[in-house]
Amino acid sequence: MFLPKYPDNPTPPPAHTHAPADPAPVRRSLPPLSIDHRAVIALVVGGVVLTALLAAVAVTAISVAVAAVVLRSMLRDHHRR
């Protein structure tokens, strides 16, 4: 900082300069990772297979529930006759 020197100025120049108390934190980044395309493909295929299995289990559960309701209804009608 530049302060002009005036002989008639009674204020002395500052004795120290202001330093920031908290320096900016150092940003640390993760090391670079090499992702294999085969691993990505395997992950996607695994996700598709697991989703298909989950859907198959859900459809099976619904069909078993419907069959149980139909059989129950048929057995009630059979016992009433």
Score class of each variant (00 low, 15 high):
residue 30 L to C: 10
residue 34 S to C: 11
residue 69 V to K: 07
residue 23 P to W: 03
residue 12 P to E: 04
residue 45 V to G: 01
residue 43 L to M: 15
residue 19 A to G: 00
residue 5 K to P: 00
residue 67 A to E: 06
residue 19 A to D: 00
residue 38 R to N: 15
residue 72 R to G: 11
residue 51 T to S: 15
residue 3 L to E: 06
residue 59 V to K: 06
residue 79 H to C: 06
residue 73 S to A: 13
residue 62 I to M: 06
residue 23 P to L: 01
residue 8 D to P: 00
residue 37 H to R: 13
residue 2 F to V: 07
residue 4 P to M: 03
residue 55 A to E: 11
residue 19 A to L: 04
residue 24 A to W: 00
residue 56 A to G: 10
residue 58 A to N: 10
residue 6 Y to V: 04
residue 20 P to A: 02
residue 50 L to D: 09
residue 47 G to A: 09
residue 49 V to M: 08
residue 31 P to R: 02
residue 81 R to V: 07
residue 18 H to T: 11
residue 81 R to N: 12
residue 14 P to K: 02
residue 11 T to Y: 10
residue 81 R to I: 04
residue 42 A to E: 15
residue 2 F to K: 13
residue 15 A to N: 06
residue 38 R to M: 14
residue 7 P to Y: 01
residue 44 V to M: 09
residue 21 A to S: 09
residue 7 P to W: 04
residue 32 P to A: 12
residue 33 L to R: 14
residue 55 A to N: 09
residue 30 L to I: 11
residue 39 A to S: 15
residue 2 F to C: 02
residue 51 T to H: 12
residue 35 I to F: 12
residue 54 L to P: 01
residue 80 R to A: 05
residue 66 V to S: 02
residue 48 V to H: 09
residue 78 H to D: 07
residue 54 L to C: 14
residue 40 V to W: 04
residue 55 A to K: 08
residue 75 L to Y: 08
residue 59 V to T: 10
residue 72 R to P: 00
residue 25 P to M: 00
residue 16 H to I: 08
residue 38 R to H: 15
residue 66 V to Q: 08
residue 37 H to M: 13
residue 77 D to C: 01
residue 59 V to E: 03
residue 8 D to L: 06
residue 28 R to Q: 12
residue 54 L to S: 14
residue 72 R to D: 06
residue 19 A to S: 05
residue 40 V to M: 11
residue 58 A to I: 10
residue 4 P to I: 03
residue 46 G to Y: 04
residue 56 A to W: 12
residue 16 H to N: 12
residue 29 S to E: 14
residue 20 P to S: 02
residue 19 A to H: 04
residue 64 V to H: 06
residue 76 R to F: 05
residue 37 H to S: 15
residue 56 A to F: 06
residue 70 V to E: 02
residue 18 H to G: 01
residue 18 H to C: 05
residue 10 P to T: 04
residue 64 V to S: 10
residue 76 R to G: 00
residue 42 A to W: 05
residue 77 D to F: 05
residue 55 A to G: 09
residue 41 I to C: 13
residue 28 R to T: 14
residue 14 P to E: 03
residue 69 V to Y: 03
residue 81 R to A: 09
residue 47 G to D: 08
residue 45 V to R: 12
residue 3 L to H: 12
residue 57 V to Q: 09
residue 71 L to Q: 09
residue 79 H to F: 14
residue 71 L to I: 07
residue 32 P to T: 01
residue 16 H to A: 05
residue 53 L to M: 15
residue 13 P to D: 07
residue 5 K to E: 12
residue 30 L to E: 14
residue 9 N to H: 06
residue 62 I to W: 08
residue 71 L to P: 00
residue 7 P to L: 08
residue 51 T to K: 11
